[in-house]
Amino acid sequence: EPLWIRPDAPSRCTWQLGRPASESPHHHTAPAKSPKILPDILKKIGDTPMVRINKIGKKFGLKCELLAKCEFFNAGGSVKDRISLRMIEDAERDGTLKPGDTIIEPTSGNTGIGLALAAAVRGYRCIIVMPEKMSSEKVDVLRALGAEIVRTPTNARFDSPESHVGVAWRLKNEIPNSHILDQYRNASNPLAHYDTTADEILQQCDGKLDMLVASVGTGGTITGIARKLKEKCPGCRIIGVDPEGSILAEPEELNQTEQTTYEVEGIGYDFIPTVLDRTVVDKWFKSNDEEAFTFARMLIAQEGLLCGGSAGSTVAVAVKAAQELQEGQRCVVILPDSVRNYMTKFLSDRWMLQKGFLKEEDLTEKKPWWWHLRVQELGLSAPLTVLPTITCGHTIEILREKGFDQAPVVDEAGVILGMVTLGNMLSSLLAGKVQPSDQVGKVIYKQFKQIRLTDTLGRLSHILEMDHFALVVHEQIQYHSTGKSSQRQMVFGVVTAIDLLNFVAAQERDQK
């Protein structure tokens, strides 16, 4: 057995438009009618409502009807409940999964919650491996369901041993009777949507819809739904939504950006999952974080739909894509998950301010006199920076000697690579993860907040409520011999709460 199987392995699926269902090699399930009293909570997966979006479509000038398939009504709160249950049931049916076995899954959280929910009911041990950027709410729900959680670096490539995929496979090879159901490759993922989600949409719309818009992560949702719609409703256009920084969209030119990270969760990847059939997507749109969270908040405030950030991405694209539809036509959007997962993220004004998705003037509360002053007023001194090749031991000596707790790590040209902190280095040394002679590049981390000289002290204040420091950066445009230009970030300084307090105190003292 291989040590790991690539999540982007070539698909062996034989589905073709027009091929009889009787030739399918898979076990198919028909939607079942729910009894009045459910035998367990797993029976509350599927049969989610279709809700008309009344205000947002009109606000953006849509002539067509805009409908939302509300997947956050599933038992675990997301569309991923469907595939989690289906993968477990299919693994039980073919004898792969037996009582007492362990389920391991690399996930952005929602599939993990679905699997942990099913594992709690069915009696399996469950280990979820997820990147650090995923919300604390997801972690809390997983723990409450009895799952064990392993976190991995957000910026690790999918084929790196440190990625959530790599760590999951390492655990599988170490733990007896453990299984990775593997949402990236498992046919049960798109089949769950082909058999149930798509049929529900067709039934709820009486077979009449002209466009379907869905955000894409593993691709199982859009693949399964689109294949069924292509068979039953061939005139329906399928629109895929991919965040900026991901590479799922086609044509490839759409993916060209210097951005590699994004805040919206559960969609987009740096590889093409095996289950994603991009041939059934008629057109791709890219979405960005700001519009995703703005539209998610709009869905909550104006439509009462308590959905997550990827739902915002989907609707932001839908109001663009559906401009081509006329009166009497219908566009369906998939709202994948609930706001429950993001209470401390985009639902929080403070978080939105820190990330730059909300401006101070958007909030009406009274601010102190210094709130709208610029960061450049602080008069920061030149920063202490270190090269990635310097040793951890030497870096600790320098920081202690100069009285700093942290320093930016830059390359020879001064471009920011990340940050090192005294606390992080000492804990890594004590844990045996690094040696004093190791290069400081081994303990770089990139989960820090950046701020510009033109940003306000109010925004800085919000950042420092949650973080010990902020890195002050400025952009530099560099022209190359080819005539092309590129933008790079340079370090201007490091600012802490002490710097802000000293500035405010000094100004008030001078005024007296």
Rank of each mutant, 00 (worst) to 15 (best):
I238V: 15
I239D: 02
I239A: 07
I239C: 03
G240V: 09
V241W: 00
V241C: 04
V241M: 06
D242F: 02
D242L: 02
D242Y: 01
P243H: 03
E244M: 05
G245A: 04
I247V: 15
L248D: 00
L248Q: 00
A249N: 04
E252Y: 12
E252T: 15
E253D: 14
Q256Y: 10
T257I: 08
T257G: 10
E258D: 12
E258F: 13
Y262I: 01
Y262S: 01
E263D: 13
E263H: 09
V264D: 01
E265T: 02
I267T: 06
G268M: 00
G268N: 00
G268Y: 02
Y269W: 02
F271T: 00
I272V: 10
P273T: 00
P273R: 00
P273V: 00
T274D: 03
V275F: 02
L276S: 02
R278V: 02
R278W: 05
T279Y: 14
V280D: 07
V280E: 11
D282H: 04
K283S: 10
K283E: 15
W284T: 01
F285L: 12
F285I: 13
F285Y: 14
F285E: 08
S287R: 03
S287E: 08
N288R: 15
N288P: 12
N288H: 06
D289P: 02
D289L: 00
D289S: 00
D289R: 02
D289W: 03
D289E: 06
A292Q: 03
A292V: 07
A292E: 08
A292I: 04
A292D: 02
F293Q: 01
F293E: 01
T294R: 10
F295T: 15
F295E: 12
F295P: 11
A296T: 07
R297A: 01
M298P: 09
L299Q: 03
I300N: 01
I300E: 00
A301S: 06
Q302E: 07
Q302M: 15
Q302F: 13
G304I: 00
L305I: 08
L305C: 02
L305G: 01
L306F: 06
C307W: 06
G308E: 00
G308W: 02
G309E: 05
G309A: 04
G309T: 00
A311Q: 06
S313L: 01
S313V: 08
S313M: 04
S313A: 13
T314N: 06
T314G: 15
V315D: 02
V315G: 09
V317D: 08
V319L: 14
V319M: 15
K320E: 12
A321Y: 07
A321Q: 10
A322R: 02
A322K: 02
Q323V: 10
Q323M: 11
Q323W: 14
E324Q: 14
E324M: 11
E324P: 13
E324Y: 12
E324W: 08
Q326H: 12
Q326N: 13
Q326K: 14
Q326V: 13
E327C: 15
E327A: 11
G328W: 06
Q329E: 11
Q329D: 07
Q329I: 02
R330W: 03
R330H: 14
R330A: 09
C331V: 03
V332I: 12
V333K: 01
I334P: 00
I334E: 00
L335T: 00
P336N: 01
V339M: 08
V339K: 05
R340Y: 05
R340Q: 07
R340N: 06
R340A: 02
N341H: 02
N341T: 02
N341E: 02
Y342W: 03
Y342F: 06
Y342R: 01
M343H: 03
M343N: 04
T344E: 07
T344L: 02
K345S: 05
F346T: 02
F346H: 04
L347P: 04
D349R: 03
R350V: 08
R350M: 12
R350T: 11
W351G: 02
W351R: 01
L353I: 12
G356A: 05
G356R: 06
F357R: 05
F357D: 02
L358Q: 08
K359E: 14
E360A: 14
E361Y: 11
E361I: 10
E361L: 10
E361F: 12
E361N: 11
L363R: 11
T364W: 13
E365C: 14
E365D: 15
K367D: 07
P368S: 12
P368L: 13
P368K: 09
W369L: 09
W369Q: 05
W370M: 02
W371V: 09
W371S: 09
W371Q: 09
L373F: 14
L373A: 10
R374W: 10
R374G: 12
R374V: 09
Q376Y: 04
Q376F: 08
Q376W: 09
E377V: 10
E377M: 11
L378E: 06
G379P: 12
L380E: 09
L380H: 10
S381Y: 09
A382V: 15
A382R: 11
A382D: 03
A382Y: 05
P383V: 07
V386L: 15
V386W: 04
L387M: 14
L387D: 11
P388S: 15
P388T: 08
P388E: 08
T389D: 14
T389P: 15
I390Q: 11
I390G: 15
T391F: 15
C392P: 11
G393M: 13
H394P: 14
H394N: 11
H394L: 06
I396P: 09
I398E: 15
L399R: 03
L399D: 04
R400C: 14
E401Q: 15
E401I: 12
E401M: 10
K402T: 12
F404D: 03
D405R: 09
Q406N: 09
Q406I: 12
A407E: 11
A407P: 11
P408L: 00
V409W: 00
V409S: 06
V410I: 13
V410P: 03
V410W: 08
V410K: 09
D411M: 10
E412V: 12
E412L: 13
A413F: 14
G414S: 14
G414L: 10
L417Q: 13
L417F: 15
G418H: 13
G418E: 04
M419D: 14
V420D: 05
T421M: 14
L422A: 11
G423I: 03
N424P: 10
N424L: 13
N424K: 12
M425D: 08
M425L: 14
L426H: 15
L426I: 13
S427I: 14
S427H: 08
S427F: 13
S428V: 15
L429E: 04
L430D: 06
Q435C: 14
Q435D: 14
Q435G: 12
P436C: 14
S437L: 15
S437P: 05
D438C: 09
Q439R: 09
V440C: 15
V440K: 05
G441C: 07
V443C: 13
V443A: 13
V443T: 14
V443Y: 15
I444C: 15
Y445M: 05
K446G: 07
K446D: 08
Q447L: 14
K449F: 10
Q450S: 15
Q450L: 12
I451Q: 06
R452W: 13
R452V: 11
R452L: 14
L453V: 13
L453I: 14
T454S: 07
T454N: 12
D455F: 06
D455E: 12
T456D: 15
G458N: 10
R459K: 14
R459H: 14
L460K: 02
L460P: 01
L460R: 02
H462S: 08
I463S: 09
L464F: 11
L464R: 04
E465W: 00
E465R: 11
E465I: 03
D467W: 11
D467Y: 03
H468A: 06
H468S: 14
F469I: 09
F469Q: 15
F469M: 03
A470G: 08
L471G: 11
V472A: 15
H474R: 07
H474N: 04
H474V: 12
H474Q: 13
E475I: 10
E475C: 14
E475W: 12
I477L: 15
Q478R: 15
H480G: 05
H480T: 09
S481F: 15
S481T: 15
T482A: 14
G483I: 06
K484C: 11
K484I: 13
K484R: 13
S485R: 12
S485M: 12
S486E: 11
S486P: 05
R488A: 15
R488E: 13
Q489N: 13
Q489T: 13
V491F: 14
V491N: 12
F492I: 14
F492N: 12
G493Q: 05
G493P: 13
V495Q: 09
T496A: 15
T496F: 14
A497T: 14
A497F: 04
I498W: 09
I498E: 11
I498D: 15
D499E: 07
L500Q: 10
L500A: 15
L501M: 13
L501C: 07
L501T: 03
N502Q: 14
N502E: 13
F503W: 11
V504Q: 08
V504Y: 12
A505Y: 07
A506D: 13
E508I: 11
R509A: 12
R509H: 14
R509G: 14
Q511E: 13
K512S: 13
